[in-house]
Design a protein around this nucleic acid. Structure first.
Lengths: 205, 205, 205, 205
DNA sequence: TATGAATGAGTGTTCATTCAT
DNA sequence: GATGAATGAACACTCATTCAT
């Protein structure tokens, strides 16, 4: 049973060619960045013509937005599911969230990296939507931390800032992680769960 | 005495127009990213002609490299000086490093952001040099953490990873900090020093 | 009886979707010119798909040709009918022609404008046919003028050139006319009939 | 002495490459229309590179605007000079204006054609300026006609509309004139001067 | 009849860079 | 040290048109 397979980010509702384009875009943006990657790169990766891209996405920006939205949706799903499946102590729930988050970053490293670094190239409504999605993720952490603080499990005087730093730490994994490295994905998850609890100055369980 | 004035990054040894160009490049890269900013943007910001840029820097990449190198030099200097001026306990030394680091990020937010996000667009020798400089900074933290671990001050089982996460947290400040926000620069420094010690599972001082 | 209603240009023989396409094409070409308007614009205006246009017209040029042919047919019909219904004096016949011509331009301003300005973008057989149709209209004027000159009603030494200038004047109405302007359509017709007779140096009736 | 040589439209103040570009643009726009002509066509005609065009004109629209402005300036100059050099009777002054106008159209047929048909592709401030210039020309005619009407020389009941039609007739010459045709430029001028006076129902001189 | 997917050529424009002065 | 002119390559995007269904 493979608990952390790497399910594609692309939802089943997508049209035929759409998935190929989205995956190619993800790869291209991850490789060269949003500006550095050209629509021709994407088309080449998706094995279609440049102009055909525009039958699916009206602009390069929309393509980026779609990629980021999908990544954020999947991340949010994973974290929420993990939290729902965890015990009642907030420390456990937060640990589960961090492990799920790390799992996502490892499974979808490129998407995580793109989400971290290319969001700045969005503008207007697309940006707002993606920023909101990102804030949802952060919001989950803030709620968990707040609940834990109320329950006396976490003693940090800066709960919100600590929550943000947890996200920073986990997100940063996407910038240096290499599969087959010193730590397995699971170890990485446990490690960062411990970091998170330490940051929150959790009372020993 | 103004301990945290915002000294320019540009060294006095620079030629006449060089400083203006470097500052303009910093601003442009910060605004739009390396690819998004054009040499014309830089020229406009430096109030000189496009072609004159090439009398100072042989290429756009070299311009980015110069900016990053300066930023890293200044950061390294600040941290080293802070550590030298701190007490003998490793916790104190590390706190001093973090506070200096936060001070740099706040003083040179744009440069910090550029260093964080545009390094990927360097290649070849220039990249190597900048990466090495960045690793020097990280190395300081690793040494401090290792010394503290040896001394029994820090109990984290993951000293190197914790050191990296300290850098991640402090660097991330550049992505959200706004002057005049909830916390002053000094408070931000103290806060992150506490986060760092918590992360390291420091024994109470 | 409404003598100057705005009967559509599209003949009843047209297939189902054809009328919508032709009208959309007319509007699009009028708005942005032949090159400026795209087949997508036409499809949008006709509320059908881009590719469906090609079930009706084999090319954009053919679409333009069809529009222009229809406009010229209607114009020719109107003028011929008006002349047939007029008295025996050439001045009266010419006045009737001009008034009918002005009526057409006012009723179908966009079509008139397109016919005036987009004919240049036709090539080959399509162009020949449309130019011939336009020349037919001009031919009517030339005959009327020649007959009037022979009859001693018009004294201009340049009958053909005068005829062409009558057409120029009336056609130009399409470039500036706005419904609800200073002059009614009927006044405009009478006015230009007078201009035409003046141009021909007609002997006082 | 060459009274109607074809002095270039390009003023002496222009930079070196500018004249070549403007002339090439004039030719290209005349040949294929504004939309039909590409910047590559212009570059080819000006014997320079595509990108170099943008060192002189920031956009294709600006290039068109520059062409049209120059044409209108020259036309206005010619008419004004002609009127100044004419006698005191308004009929004479108007004849002079028409002859000068015809001379311009013949000398700069392409420019006249472009001014007549491509003005619609301008927008914003550029359009306003060119429209204003065109209206200046029309204004001269209106003043002459009004003065003649006051003096009892012209009896038309529609002085302004007649003035507009004079412009229409003369402008239309650009759409059909071919050098070496039936009429010389001078004859064409005299002919249209006669047409104009006839249109105005001028009292016999 | 009607559609969405697909394509290759072409669009205006911007790019980093070079060069003559 | 500084400039404006010049360039070739690349860019995102649109075009008219075709084709399978």
């Amino acid at each position: 049973m493979n608990e952390r397979s790497s399910p594609t980010l692309i939802p089943d509702t997508a049209r035929a060619g759409e998935a190929a384009i989205l995956n190619a875009a993800l790869e291209a943006f991850g490789d060269k960045g949003f500006y550095g990657a050209s629509m021709r790169d994407v088309a080449r990766g998706a094995k279609t013509s440049l102009s055909n891209l525009y039958n699916y996405f009206p602009s390069k920006s929309d393509l980026l937005a779609a990629v980021l939205r999908m990544a954020n949706d999947e991340l949010l799903n994973r974290i929420q599911q993990a939290v729902r499946g965890a015990g009642r102590r907030q420390a456990d729930r937060l640990s589960a969230a961090v492990r799920a988050h790390v799992g996502f970053v490892v499974d979808h490293q490129v998407a995580s990296l793109v989400a971290l670094s290319e969001i700045r190239y969005l503008t207007g409504a697309a940006r707002k939507r993606v920023v909101a999605a990102r804030d949802s993720t952060q919001g989950i952490y803030e709620e968990l931390v707040a609940a834990g603080a109320t329950a006396g499990e976490f003693r940090t005087p800066y709960p919100d800032d600590a929550a943000r730093n947890i996200v920073s730490m986990v997100s940063a994994i996407s910038t240096w992680y290499r599969p087959g490295g010193r730590l397995s994905a699971e170890e990485l998850g446990n490690q960062h769960a411990r970091f998170a609890l330490a940051l929150l100055e959790a009372t020993p369980g």
